[in-house]
Design a protein around this nucleic acid. Structure first.
Lengths: 207, 207
DNA sequence: TTCAATACATACCAACTAGTCTGTTTAATT
DNA sequence: AATTAAACAGACTAGTTGGTATGTATTGAA
């Protein structure tokens, strides 16, 4: 009973996210969100108790989709399990493909929140760090699988190599946005792929 | 005549920068700056006509120091001009050393501004893109020098490889800050160094 | 020692902020 | 058709925002 609030809720999330990428969180007022969505204050505060609640809902949705994409790429490359390096390279390639041909620079909520951390409660920020750690764990596993059959030409720290993927994502987002051109993420993921390709060398089996 | 305003001016810049890294630009109020510096509104608006003027002064100082560091690293490695690859690797190593042993995550004003771009005028934002392009040009030159004597094992786009350094800087800043641990920049610059080391192979001279 | 420009102090203001309160509309249920 | 809870509308408020106006203190130069 009562009308369906889902479209309104979704609209708030979508337009808020877009506004956050232009103005940041503090720089985005609720009145701005109302203007952009065409809804009123009553509707907004019906769906979100506070502005912080919106921030939390936004990052939860964003992180969920992020991990979803990651798991999709894992699934799509599962058929390459036989050669762990080939799988790792194709895993990165999935994101190269995904980010290719983006006209606008892509913006990331993690960076948005991270660069004004005092505006968010601990739970909200922990959501970000935990998602990054999920990426770390996934990448670490992919790399460990490679290391079963491959050595590295240069001694490396596995954890920091695992983090390197997210580092390149985030860095490419910042630089693309700062240069206001097209999105450069795909290009830089290719460098990551190159690095993996060059770094590993098949173990010599002493038969 | 009149007392010396330099200490006040410098104090405003220093404390503002620290506040920006905690709260972002919109999230930092002038009253907060006054509290932190112990000065009054009159003093603040004597030195900066508007809040935007502060933003501009901050990014100008920041970019100036950034390019200064870059040029220092260039100078320090000039003695390696004979082997361009060795020089490139040592150039990166200079920043590995610089960022090593940082207890706190390092924050970058470029990312701070880039993730709330509507808060700044075009001139201020252009300052950032131009600084990044200066990095691009410098790196591109270093890489071109290498390519005189080396081939790449994998075909690469020089410009995007040139940008890759700033990408890794910015990405490492974001991830370090998001994870709230120690600064990870040095670790990720090492991966960049590894990549360069693996990518180039000395040209075979047909004598 | 007066002068004048620099450097600062403080009260004030209009606009905006997140959030509240009271009421109205909508639509499935009985 | 009446009921009821969900979904929304919009006026209102207390606090904060960037910025101003006006006055005062400091200091070297004349």
């Amino acid at each position: 009973m009562g009308r369906d609030g889902k479209p309104t809720y979704d609209k708030i999330l979508a337009e808020s996210k877009a506004l956050l990428f232009e103005n940041g969180f503090s720089g985005t007022s609720i009145d701005q969100i109302l203007q952009r969505t065409g809804i009123t204050k009553g509707a907004f505060f019906y769906h979100f108790k506070t502005k912080s609640a919106l921030a939390k809902a936004l990052i939860e949705e964003y992180a969920k989709e992020d991990i979803l994409h990651m798991n999709e790429a894992l699934k799509k490359t599962k058929y390459l399990e036989g050669d762990a390096l080939e799988r790792l390279l194709q895993f990165i390639q999935e994101f190269v493909d995904m980010m290719s041909g983006l006209s606008e620079p892509y913006s990331c909520l993690y960076a948005t929140y991270t660069y004004e951390p005092s505006q968010f409660d601990e739970e909200t920020l922990r959501h970000i760090s935990e998602t990054i750690l999920t990426w770390r764990n996934t990448m670490e596993q992919l790399i460990r699988d490679v290391l079963q059959d491959y050595d590295t030409k240069i001694e490396i720290d596995i954890q920091s190599l695992a983090d390197h993927t997210v580092v390149i994502f985030e860095g490419a987002f910042v630089v693309s946005k700062a240069l206001k051109g097209r999105d450069l993420t795909a290009d830089h993921l290719k460098h990551l792929k190159n690095y993996f390709q060059l770094l590993f060398i098949r173990k010599t089996t002493k038969d």
